[in-house]
């Protein structure tokens, strides 16, 4: 989940963005990991995450593989979170996205008590993550800081596009699609929630923060 590390945005833009994920290390604690990963997600679901995902099988927002013209008006935009939990059958990475630190904190407290024995990471504002940990009685072990983008920055699009597209660090949310959704929202062809849902479907791991995406789209619509 290096894909959670380099989300573009100012401190303020990232204020409602907390991804917590669990994974086992190959050859160290991966034996019997799938049930622990399922427990992680089931505990997370008690605390109102806005997205959950299995990095191998996908998140709650998924593409439909057998649409018909009649289905367009009743498309299933997302699957039940329990389906994501049930899909864990191998040693994968699972994640939950929160838009409220209080919910993350409550989850952390419960997670600590569950003592799953697999690695847990939070990708978020580092001081906010630290505060959540401290309140849950956890001392952080390691930190990886995002130092941003370097190289030929002329190849990057504008800030609203980057804020939307970098929420999938695997690059599955194309800059052009983010730009298209921004334009469609400005033109009134789709509302921010619909646009955020389209974008979230391209994020394979289920780490796309639709709350933040809706906010970014709303701000961009009025030229903020």
């Amino acid at each position: 989940m290096t894909n959670t590390l380099h989300r573009f945005g100012s401190r303020d833009s990232l204020r409602d963005d907390y991804i917590i994920f669990a994974m086992a290390a190959r050859g160290i604690n991966d034996q019997g990991a799938p049930p622990k990963l399922q427990t992680f997600l089931r505990l997370a679901l008690k605390h109102h995450p806005i997205n959950v995902g299995n990095a191998v099988k996908g998140g709650i927002f998924r593409a439909s593989k057998a649409l018909t013209p009649l289905a367009h008006w009743r498309r299933r935009e997302f699957i039940a979170p329990e389906e994501v939990v049930e899909s864990i059958d191998t040693c994968t990475t699972v994640s939950a996205v929160f838009d409220d630190p209080a919910n993350l904190e409550a989850f952390l407290t419960e997670l600590r008590g569950a003592d799953l024995g697999i690695s847990i990471n939070i990708a978020a504002l580092t001081d906010e993550a630290r505060t959540c940990c401290q309140r849950a009685g956890i001392t952080r072990h390691s930190v990886e800081y995002s130092l941003g983008f370097h190289g030929d920055l002329n190849r990057l699009p504008d800030r609203h596009v980057l804020e939307l597209s970098t929420m999938c660090g695997h690059g599955m949310v194309a800059h052009n699609l983010a730009k298209k959704m921004l334009d469609w929202v400005k033109e009134g062809r789709r509302d921010p929630r619909q646009a955020a849902t389209y974008l979230a479907k391209f994020c394979t791991c289920g780490i796309y923060n639709t709350t933040r995406a809706i906010r970014v789209l709303e701000e961009a619509r009025v030229g903020k």
Binding site: L5, G27, I28, L111, L125, R140, V143
Partner: peptide, 28 residues
Amino acid sequence: EKALAGEGYPVFRGKTNLGLGRLSNLDA
């Protein structure tokens, strides 16, 4: 963190490993 901030790098966002993992594979 302080050294990076002193050099002008942004360090406000990152990934925090909580240290909750442990060895459990018997061979490991």
